[in-house]
Amino acid sequence: MQKFTTLTAPAAAYLKPNVDTDLVIRVERCSRTPRERLGDYAFEMARFTGGNGDSGAPDPAFPLNRPQFAGAGILVGGVNFGCGSSREMAVWAIAGMGFRCVIAPSFGEIFYGNCFQNGLLAIRLPQAVVEALGGALLAAASPVSLTVDLARQVVIAPGGAEHRFEIDPLRKTGLLEGLDPIGLTLRREAEIAAWQAADRARRPWIYNA
């Protein structure tokens, strides 16, 4: 997995609450679009006129289409960002747009977990902080960069103000070192086998279905 240590990048804001993963990537893109092309269809219902990434033009009313957000690497989102479906294509689509970090007051839980499986850092900050950061981005006429320092667990605003965030230590190490979760668990095969052997005696019906 791709490592994540520090990132300084222009940031974009889309503060709508309850952005669901159906909105991030339509279900038909999940079955028929190669992973590398999902970014072209991210948010397509809101992002393109006619709601279609194949035939529509960028809709100027959609926040992420603002010129100052072109090339952004950090996405500032609203409450309950990524709620709904478990589709990991939503993370692939957001990564496909060029984002490596999403900051929001809260996330859909499955989406949140999926981010870390793909080297994307999801950061929870208090709602007031997110709204202030996002508001400043939306008000700016030219690109504004934020810095994210994962080791120190801070988001650094343009004026230098630091906002500390919490993160599960295992996820933090995973990103800092670019560790592969499956590889790590496979190292525990003996423990898994021993647990199952004991469990077979305890709950034979689980294994006899």
């Binding site: 709904g84 479906s85 478990s86 589709r87 990991e88 294509m89 993370v91 499955i110 977990g113 999926n114 499986q117 793909n118 979760p181 499956i182 668990t185 496979l186 095969e189 898994i192 199952q196």
Partner: peptide
Amino acid sequence: ADSHTCTNGALGALAFGIGASELLHVLATQ
């Protein structure tokens, strides 16, 4: 790998949805 896996909790199971990467993890490691 489906968010409505929570439905199964009605029987007293601990059931939840996962993503595609976690699905691979389950297949490989149980």
